[in-house]
Design a protein around this nucleic acid. Structure first.
Lengths: 134, 134
DNA sequence: GTAGCTGCAAACTCTTTGCAACTCT
DNA sequence: AGAGTTGCAAAGAGTTTGCAGCTAC
């Protein structure tokens, strides 16, 4: 388990109380929280934290690739710590997000890009589904 | 080639001048225009058209699945007429969008969803790349 | 000491909405 | 005639920013 605080320090970020709180919230998150959610959880730890700081910090972390921004449904962004590359299956009924990886898929994508004359830099795959009755 | 006006009429949409103009803009588009772009092109045909109408019409068309909404880069939406299912490769340098299809990919996605206990309802794949020098 | 960070409130961007007038069917 | 549509301007959501004070390094 990597300590986000170390990663940020190495990236040259000044380590403030607020940032420590936000990083803890992100590390502990097992979901893909919105800015609003990160803000609420952070306030639970240090109530003086402001929305602006949450936005600024998340943007910074995104630029540094420490965090990944998603916009699964359009209107607002959601974040997760940048671990190994994976994809998401979004449960259309509950909004739950399930992560998965698939080697075969990675190869095909690389191939498709190359065939189109491109070097693959990034990609995203999202599946939207309904739970099968068992 | 399907006539969008017919499709809309069948869906029960009242056909106004404004809608005819917007549908023409969408049919003619070979790119994936933003609301702003649709608005500008529509104004080129009928300068009295309003932004609100463009928004309302695109939302309606999206609900009817006549059009597909994308948000490739987060901040604003872009639209295209809903043809056969395909995916997008976004050129990171120019912003160009290239469409592609891949049978193999479709099968794998179906399989992944099933393995996770889900029925696949929808999905999206986006590749982001840089043009290979030849 | 100073470059960078913070909270606040105002500003900004994209999108939606209430309303009164108008228009398809 | 009546339900649905329009333009306008105002409101809304989500996000960014200018500023003066504060803090990590």
């Amino acid at each position: 388990m990597v300590d986000l605080i170390d990663v940020c320090a190495e990236a040259g970020m000044k380590m403030t109380d607020q940032r420590r709180v936000i990083l803890k919230v992100l590390s502990d998150a097992e979901d893909h929280p919105s800015v609003e959610t990160v803000y609420e959880r952070a306030k639970g730890i240090d109530s003086s934290i402001s929305m602006a700081t949450v936005y600024r910090t998340l943007n910074l972390l995104d630029e540094l690739d420490i965090v990944v921004r998603h916009d699964f449904n359009g209107s607002f962004s959601r974040y997760e710590v940048n671990m190994e590359h994976h994809h998401h299956l979004i449960d259309l009924e509950t909004g739950d997000v399930i992560e998965f990886q698939n080697e075969e898929l990675e190869k095909i994508k690389e191939k498709i890009a190359n065939e189109l004359g491109y070097e693959l830099v990034d990609h995203r795959l999202e599946l939207y589904g309904r739970r099968l009755k068992k």
